[in-house]
Design a binder for these strands. Structure first.
Lengths: 250, 250
DNA sequence: TTATATCTTTTATAAGACAAAAGACGGAAC
DNA sequence: GTTCCGTCTTTTGTCTTATAAAAGATATAA
């Protein structure tokens, strides 16, 4: 290399950014472009160092940050891999539901409906769409063991999930985000949740087998893919008799 | 230095641990021992490197991890500081309550009771005490703007908070954790919360000015100090008409 | 008095040398 | 033929060194 240590790879930009962060952005771009699929190994640190003309340590620092953000997973001696929702370890990152006592029980998703509609003002705002844009509305029940614990209403941009249907949902035995990732190439990387206590009513009360008016935990979620783009809005009613929402403040 | 690069600072231990992690443990120990107080600057990286006979980069990596865990705060050009609850930025790390719409309103804690008792089986278990050990029970109301939003019942080990009383609580204008830290030298660094929806009853319903039986968000918290030692158990009833519990899944 | 340069101390960045982990491969032992 | 065990290669992990950037303090000039 014929550059002095701290010179930029590109011409001096208006907003300064250290080398390792520029490398991070480049790797991120390749990730978004789908150059490597979820579960795949990305090139080794020394390969990337060669490609970008920087030292291994610099590539390493870029990857460090991406691993901390759960975008990549490192395995010593093996390589660095694109994080995937098919990995069972990543499952409970997006489902914070645990039994009040006793062991973790297996969960099962029961799809109820899946239809198309036009976005109302609220959904459009949440998903960053034009009002009237095509969306998919999906309802499902989450059973833990024998008990129906969560009733979900899920709103998706129609454009990204072309052929999604109740049949496909019923056929699939993967988690929803695994399906989104493998079938539609949409990877969820982050979500925001807003929790409230509400009184059970209508379908939710019925499906969760609780009295009308009894308390339910309402969890509203917006999930984002690369570039902080919102691609799912979800409203879940949680029956918290035997389960609770677990959160760690760290 | 007369050691080869990767030799240990101590005699080879049965459980291998890289150098930077040993340094981290040493810094942690000084922190627990109170060698530097919350808000204080710790010695510079090069000073610590000298003290521990390693390179600055190794100290740096140790501090990196502790900064990621919110134990230390770095400021370029100034130094590295012991994290403190008196810093307003750290406040919302432990209070995840935001208004449904509009700006953040100022919050005010209203202490109601503070008395001593003996630990029952449940509190003893949560706090790792013997049943019958002295504890403090405290009740308070959290007001956001004019509205009473949270009713808290807080259980503390009596031993650690010798002179804590209703008067002291009323006098203090700090946050509770700031008070614990500055007056009793007990620093909260981590907490686990369990959330459920419950029906309002008794005192909680009355103080939060909601109907008996209407839904409330119940937030149970165990907070830990250094060494993962539980030092607070708390049960909070949240009225979620105009506010909600915000959580980020990252 | 006020701005401006200069020096010092601090954390931040980058690169290089080497270690540890994981597997693949091949030959010896049985 | 199969199993075991060393050896080699490729990968991520650790540690050090050199230097840059940030923030203040201090001195200097207008």
């Amino acid at each position: 290399m014929n550059r002095s240590p701290h010179s930029r790879a590109t011409a001096p930009s208006p907003t300064f950014s250290p080398l390792y962060r520029q490398i991070k952005d480049l790797i991120l771009k390749s990730l978004e472009a789908g150059e490597w699929q979820p579960g795949d190994a990305i090139p080794s640190e020394s390969e990337l160092a060669l490609r970008f003309n920087v030292s291994q340590g610099t590539v390493r620092k870029a990857i460090d940050e991406m691993a901390a953000e759960n975008l990549l997973v490192r395995r010593q001696g093996k390589g660095t891999f694109v994080a995937t929702h098919s990995d069972p370890r990543s499952f409970f990152r997006f489902l914070r539901l645990v039994p009040n006592e006793g062991e973790l029980v297996p969960s099962r998703s029961v799809p109820l409906e899946c239809g198309r509609a036009k976005a109302g003002a609220d959904v459009a705002r949440m998903l960053g769409l034009e009002p009237g844009a095509p969306i998919i509305i999906m309802r499902r029940l989450l059973k833990l063991g024998d008990e129906a614990v969560v009733f979900d209403e899920i709103y998706l941009p129609g454009e990204l999930f072309q052929d999604l249907s109740l049949d496909i949902l019923k056929q699939s035995d993967k988690s929803l985000y695994d399906l989104f990732e493998s079938r539609y190439g949409v990877r969820m990387i982050r979500a925001e949740e807003r929790l409230r206590a509400v009184a059970a009513e209508g379908v939710a009360a019925e499906l969760l087998e609780v009295e009308e008016g009894s308390p339910l935990l309402l969890v509203e979620r917006v999930a984002f893919t690369y570039g902080n783009k919102p691609v799912e809005w979800r409203r879940g009613f949680y029956a918290t008799r035997n389960f609770h929402y677990f959160n760690e403040l760290a």
